[in-house]
Simulated scan of single mutants.
Amino acid sequence: MTSFKDEIENDKMPAKLRVLVGNWQRKTDRAPSNDMLRRAAKDVKDNSISERQAALNYGVPRTTLKRYILASSPEKQKIGTYKGVTRYKFMPKDIYNTDESRFATVQTPGKVVSSLGKKKVGATTSQERGELTTIACTINAAGNALQPFYIFKRVRWNNASLNGTPVGLIGTAIKTAWMDTEVLSNQNLPFLITNSRCSQDKPVLLLLDNHVSHVSLKTIVLAKNSGVVLLTLPSHTSHRLRPLDRTVFGTMKIFFNGALDDCMRSNPDRSIYTYDTEALYACAFVKAMTL
């Protein structure tokens, strides 16, 4: 007497029963087997049946089957290399990534330790709704980091905004506190060019996302004349490909929240404003950039 598994492998089971068994296996295993995907993809590639019919016959999701076929195609297996790496012969110290993230003056409180059986346990925050500040960071593949660039939510710039920060740090004031084309081309990119000491004879590679503020004509012309090769990441992939998102910003926000918690415990009777956070940003930045 043959089992269901033997009948499926030998293609002796009726199509409708195969669908029922496949649905049961999918609900229990939560994922189609590689053998089922391989056999379904083989039938589609041989042009014997369509993707929809193969998904029904083998009990696999149609979207999963389609992605499996695309991933196993010869065109997808030929992984290309960015030609600029071999053309310019970039070293790790010449490959930079610039990105920005927003920080608020209202922290997310961490876990609170209390005695057993206590009903009400809470933590203090600075304000109900705080102010946002954008911090643009730049790192390279060698593990080095440039000074962060601050974008404060203000109309006019005040030098007191950088009190308690390291020497050489710069910033600007914008009404929206977002990175825009003027800030990138007039301040942030020239700051990178000055500190990386790049030129047309010694270019550097700068990785950016596809945001509209990063691909303006003024930025491209400045980068080309200064020896900065711009490479933008594909849409909807930056959260996986950007080194700063993957390794720095999450850790930096944890350290910044911890610094705000310590500040609130030391000063429980006052709120924290933007002028009080510059030194906390710098401290969190140094800890997050430590290898």
Rank of each mutant, 00 (worst) to 15 (best):
R38H: 10
S266L: 05
H214P: 02
R26W: 07
Y68V: 02
L184C: 11
L205N: 01
I174T: 13
E128S: 13
S73F: 06
T98S: 12
T219M: 02
N97H: 05
H211I: 06
F103T: 14
E278D: 06
T98N: 13
L241C: 06
A279L: 06
T125C: 14
D94P: 00
D201E: 13
S226M: 04
I174D: 10
L222A: 09
A104F: 09
T219K: 06
D94H: 12
A104S: 15
L222S: 11
E100R: 07
T108H: 13
A141G: 06
N158S: 14
A55K: 02
P109F: 04
N10I: 03
S216V: 05
F249C: 11
V60F: 05
N195C: 07
L207H: 02
M289K: 11
G258A: 06
N47T: 00
M179A: 08
T108D: 09
D201M: 11
L162C: 02
T64D: 12
F191T: 03
A15I: 13
S161P: 02
Y275G: 13
V60D: 05
G143F: 08
H214N: 04
V212A: 08
V215L: 05
T181Q: 10
A123F: 08
P203S: 02
Q77L: 11
M264N: 14
I69L: 14
L280A: 07
G250W: 09
I8M: 15
M252S: 09
P243L: 11
Q147M: 01
L230W: 01
T81I: 03
V215P: 03
N23V: 09
I220F: 02
